[in-house]
Design a protein around this nucleic acid. Structure first.
Lengths: 406, 406
DNA sequence: GGCAGTTTGCTCAGACCGAGGACAAACGCG
DNA sequence: CGCGTTTGTCCTCGGTCTGAGCAAACTGCC
């Protein structure tokens, strides 16, 4: 139940019903392809005549494609409809601290080519290099195809209106307009979003397996830090200053250990991979030299899981502690948002059988109902890097999104 | 950008544009009344002809009312339009632990009559008594008026689909269907919601003063416990199991003091009125006899504020500590949701000048940007009980809500 | 009082689109 | 080949927006 904003609203015109039904057809084809016109008419509860008219429009626009005819036991054989996806290309770019990843994929998110490069923190160097690679990939793989745009994922909050990167401490970026720069350099439309939010969007827009009825979930990324993308009522939560989803820096214990952000007892300081490794090695997370030592040691959480499985009891205890803290942080997420599920991405997932029991115990202690405590946690198994999928989703989503009315 | 749910969607029909524009007219009149047809046409950017047609429909349905003619410097004088509100009555019912409040108001939320009764925990006794009082009030005050429905607010989560009260520990209710009972007893439509959510809804639907463009805020109620209603992207957050907004039981410090819910270090255990008083008196919150002692002492937070102003340094320190804990809890809310503002209701607001500085310091320490740390906190000054206004909003909102399409 | 200019509210033809029925095409089966 | 079934298209009808045109109402000025 939404209130109509009387300062900024979208009046219905003559063409509004068609825009709405057009998008419904598009989404029905996407979710049930291949599908016949008659089947669409049944699912939409309209006459076949209207479907014909809508489909013809979408075929003319190149959104749909008519495929083979189906074999049915009785009657005329239907011509099946598909989303036109194989010759529509999308670039996904994931800018990270160490390396920047670049994927060329089609409209279904199917990977065509992936490459990566060392991240240059200066946008003046990074953007031209990206543009050059994109142009080359398009020449090599994009024969006879159209390119719909570039999805760009950055490690920090992005201003929704302007597309400027507000704050990316890892890159040393403050209020940088990479989007406009890349758009100018390539001539393609660029969509930008912060990493966690993009992963949540990918879960909705580029996940062929899971049901589309889940309208609220939290996408949690546990790596050097803890990031989260929030989906509520079917829409991403960006917040007033585009700073929502910073669950990594909620205090679990305001008398706890120092976090990199300067505060005490942030969730990150307990449950991130760095925190887990620091606990195992006995190093102090807030100490820069200790962090350097940690990096040099080549120790990873995945390695810790292997050690634990190999009989290293201290590794096991460390992981169990991480599970406990993960549960306390999750209790906070669940008490706040009560999502239908939590999706977890990170190396910690490789040892989930070790981590989950203490996590569930902590969750049970800090949530109000058993249903909340049993909120499903789904491990991200994405073959493709989830963030690249998120970047691709940025380009795909606007095409299928519900029209804005009222 | 919302994805269309292909299992459950709302197709556009011939009448969809009119439904949309009808609601827009209704909302424009509500926000700018009194307003002329010509002015509506200008605001909507349509011809005056269409406005005439829409308005005639709304007049016939009794949603609008034609009032006096305006005095304008030039040209024909317009006939001004109003929402028909004075002869449309709404009952608001607020069921609380000690007493149950009952308000008769009009469609603008203007109070006509208020009364209260001792709360009987047995719905079999409470509902008939409510129905009797509602019938009597309608006889006395409702001459020539229609009654649009009853808004019912309860202290606990409500199942969105069925309207059953899932869990109201104060009342000893578990999975109780008060709504159906009251509907059967009165013959009026009953809308039910939990108290915090209803307060948030009232802020959107029954607040003539504040701008309607704020699409995300958190309504915080600090009393015996800490409750919260969350508004994000213009819609209330109920969560998957209708348990969202339980910020009161997020752990601030998992090694902290025991909370009534059984866990340790809940926000409630630090910042609720009971927690503040316990800290002042040195009593243990988790101990039932201490709680009884506290109740018997007649000490309130408002009283504590007076003592602090009178020079009681320990009262001042206690309030400042509460401010500190309030800030830590709010940092959590702000890191998670990043709302445009926080609305605060509770006795603690009477001493806000004492409480805010330590609150802001704690907020600054635990949020990532200065904008987030400076999130405005607005004190609820509602003359009418905010929860009664929330109950009334439940009846009013559906009339003005945007239609559901796609 | 009469006239010009302005604003409001209403009417009406035209265009767009959904609703629903009619019909040809395509196909399997006896 | 005819029958039944299913698909896809066509066409008319009615609801809604669109935009122009017009009468009504009002002020100010001559």
């Amino acid at each position: 139940m939404r209130k109509i904003n009387t300062r900024h609203f979208h009046r219905a015109t003559r063409t509004t019903p068609r825009e709405i039904n057009r998008q419904i057809v598009l989404n029905l084809v996407r979710d049930h392809q291949p599908i016949s016109r008659a089947d669409l008419a049944r699912r939409m509860d309209v006459g076949r005549g209207m479907v014909t008219s809508l489909v013809n429009e979408l075929l003319a626009e190149g959104e749909l494609r008519e495929g083979e005819t189906a074999n049915v036991p009785r009657g005329r054989k239907p011509k099946l409809l598909h989303i036109r996806s194989h010759d529509r290309l999308v670039f996904a770019v994931d800018i990270r601290f160490t390396r920047t990843y670049l994927m060329l994929c089609d409209f279904d998110g199917r990977e065509h080519a992936v490459e990566s490069l060392e991240t240059d923190f200066d946008p003046g160097t990074l953007v031209p290099e990206l543009a050059e690679r994109i142009e080359r990939l398009l020449r090599v793989h994009g024969a006879g195809c159209s390119c719909e745009g570039i999805g760009l994922v950055v490690p920090g909050p992005v201003a929704r209106g302007t597309g400027r990167v507000l704050h990316a401490p890892q890159m040393g970026w403050h209020d940088i307009d990479v989007r406009a720069a890349l758009e100018a350099a390539t001539g393609l439309p660029v969509y930008i979003e912060n990493d966690s939010t993009a992963c949540a969007l990918a879960e909705v827009w580029l996940n062929p397996h899971r049901s589309n009825t889940v309208e609220s979930f939290v996408y949690l990324t546990v790596a050097e830090g803890v990031g989260s993308g929030i989906m509520v009522n079917g829409e991403v939560v960006r917040g007033h200053g585009d700073m929502a989803g910073e669950f990594g820096h909620v205090p679990l214990n305001f008398e706890g250990p120092r976090c990199l952000c300067g505060a005490r007892g942030c969730w990150e300081a307990y449950a991130s991979d760095l925190a887990t490794l620091a606990r195992y090695t006995g190093l102090e997370l807030a100490d820069p030299t200790a962090r350097e030592q940690l990096r040099a040691s080549q120790l990873t959480v995945a390695g810790l899981v292997q050690r634990a499985r190999g009989g290293d009891t201290r590794a096991l205890e460390t992981l169990e502690a991480t599970g406990h803290y993960l549960g306390i942080g999750l209790s906070l997420v669940i008490n706040a948002i009560n999502p239908a599920r939590v999706i977890l991405d990170g190396q910690i997932a490789t040892g989930w059988d070790l981590v989950e029991p203490p996590m569930r115990r902590a969750l049970a202690a800090h949530t109000l109902t058993v249903e909340a405590a049993n909120t499903p946690v789904i491990l991200e198994t994405g073959g493709i890097h989830p963030r690249l999928r998120g970047a691709a989703a940025l380009v795909v989503a606007p095409v299928f999104a519900a029209p804005i009315v009222a």
